[in-house]
Design a protein around this nucleic acid. Structure first.
Lengths: 342, 342
DNA sequence: GCCTATTATTTTCGCGCGTAAAATTTCTGT
DNA sequence: ACAGAAATTTTACGCGCGAAAATAATAGGC
């Protein structure tokens, strides 16, 4: 059987002109019944599919969406990306996933290539105000309908869907306080992700409200190896007995995983109860936080809601032709998950 | 300042003909010095870049490489993919990463789109012989220089770079045996990843060599939520006291993470020593295995070597025009990492 | 059965670029 | 200043397809 190389050849063997075949692939219902049947018969025999990239080059409005995350080897982003991807597919779009691997140059390169993909829209979690190249992103958002998520850059993009970091912090601090303890705040001094800064501020504000003195414990280390940074930082703190309180609120679950590892190493019993030395809570509901020992008490992202809302907002943006009017900002609050660690 | 929309316009403002500009972008050293200077001057002013997808459509040999993994939310694949991506970039190629999200239909769709990308080569970790659509993959490999990794499909692709599963199992079993115990083998009855089957066989063979009776403990559950499957399986086993030995070798680290979680839940002390109830070892050196409690004794992949060898082999394959002669197979053996869990 | 209104299909052109061949310019050495 | 080589430009085409305009086919009304 003859091998079909392009739409021309396929049109030939199906006995229909190429543009009509093209119409069929754009929308099978836009051609006559008899025509559709003939095309589908040929399709069964020859197994041809249009070249996606040639299609993109020509179509005025594509069904592509770009998804860009700062670091895909972080399971939090892997999980949120997977959710978003699947919702895009459900909505009839074709998602392409990119990771900046923590590098601003790569982020810029990704945006450049994305332009060529002519995406109907882009869902973009930037490296952050401090790390991203703001001018490049602004230019990009002017040309391509873009929705930021996870990490905001003020005034850039048509919308921002993020986490209500204050609610994350308030709920965990409140819970720890009500159950009898005052947490210190464990974080990276120079965090890779900008949400960390909002969480720190929210922690200080929450402690103020409670009339308590805030204790921020910042550890050294840069990059995305949060677990190792958390572990090393915790080891140092535990050795020098420098922890200001017996309850620790970690800025995120990956740091907490490292912290728990250090505690185990030092024989410190983590948990909520009379025979425990330390309570450790955290934020994100990282996919593994339920499998740590002890399982992490954490403020959970609503992965599902974030994915749904970002994709819905993008669809609206696309339908409304790239302008939602006012820049839409939406912070999704958390759900506290009580596990054994605190 | 005028906005440049394509190479034509850019050629205009730089005062050079379009084909020469095209040559420049293909290889800046292929044009005269004075020409290059003029182009680069214009480049600084106008910030133009060729449309990647239009380039791909026309170039006979592109610098694209496709990377396909079965499940990117698995940190093992995220880590190996990140390594491979970075090596490709170093080698001057342009990698595109795809995840089948565990679904054969998606895997097929990815291969289809990959064809349109005209990649110089593809690095492909298939879902596996049982799950992948073998015919689709065979067809693909006939058309595109492809190297399989992680999971082999006999006779398909120009080469296979994988793990020497036997060495993984032998080293862990040997170590556990020498240090005084006989392990049972903890696995999924219907594993998502085909390496699991080779590991089981290797375990049985290893036990035979030692003159011991093998004990395979297979737990139910399908899909890619290995930690949860391991946890539920372990809980059941521990409750009914059905574990045949006091030493457990898990088929992979993610199962082991779930297993450890169950042990913690039941108050069972895992580790190597007189006051421990159970030893747990595993395989993969998953990025988090050093942070579990206790840290996992595991047979480590040489991530670096795998990434280097796959990319090197692909480069050879590309240079040799798609035919390496004999199908090249290489299994990389493991390095045992002793931690506290066993 | 004839004419118009409504699809459906074909014609023609364009997207942004690579590539090959021929014509022209520039450079090198003398 | 001149022959020959090397680089560049011109010209022309192709890639695989979408989209608007032009044409053909069908349906409806009388």
């Amino acid at each position: 059987m003859r091998k079909i190389r392009n739409m021309e050849e396929f049109a030939e063997v199906s006995g229909i002109s190429r543009p009509t075949v093209s119409k069929y692939f754009h929308d099978p219902d836009s051609v006559r019944d008899s025509t559709r049947k003939r095309i589908e018969a040929a399709l069964a025999k020859y197994d041809y599919r249009p070249n996606m990239f040639a299609v993109n080059q020509n179509r005025k409005l594509t069904k592509n969406v770009g998804i860009v995350v700062p670091y895909l080897a972080d399971p939090y982003f892997a999980e949120i990306a997977r959710n978003i991807e699947e919702r895009c597919i459900e909505a009839g779009f074709h998602p392409s996933l990119f990771s900046a691997h923590g590098k601003p140059e790569l982020e810029n390169a990704i945006l450049d290539n994305l332009r060529a993909l002519k995406p109907a829209g882009v869902l973009f979690a930037p490296l952050g105000r401090r790390n991203s190249d703001k001018k490049v992103i602004e230019d990009f958002c002017r040309d391509v309908p873009t929705i930021l998520f996870d990490s905001n850059i003020e005034g850039v993009g048509a919308a921002f869907i993020g986490s209500d970091n204050a609610s994350f912090v308030n709920q965990t601090v409140d819970y720890l306080h009500r159950s009898g303890d005052i947490p210190c705040f464990f974080e990276m001094r120079y965090p890779a992700n900008p949400n960390a800064i909002r969480r720190r501020d929210a922690y200080i504000a929450a402690m103020d409200r409670l009339g308590m003195e805030p204790h921020v414990v910042a550890v050294e280390g840069t990059g995305w190896a949060f677990e190792e940074i958390g572990r090393q930082g915790a080891l140092k703190l535990l050795e020098s007995d420098a922890l200001p309180t017996r309850t620790v609120l970690c800025s995120n679950d990956r740091l907490a995983i490292g912290f728990l590892s250090a505690c185990y190493d030092r024989g410190i019993v983590v948990g909520f109860g009379p025979d425990c030395d330390l309570r450790v809570a955290s934020m994100d509901d990282h996919p593994y936080s339920r499998f740590t020992c002890p399982p992490l008490t954490t403020a959970a992202h609503d992965y599902d809601a974030v994915a749904r809302l970002t994709v819905e907002t993008l669809l609206k943006l696309i339908e409304s032709d790239g302008t939602l009017g006012e820049r839409y900002e939406r912070l999704i609050s958390t759900r506290l998950i009580l596990r054994a660690s605190a």
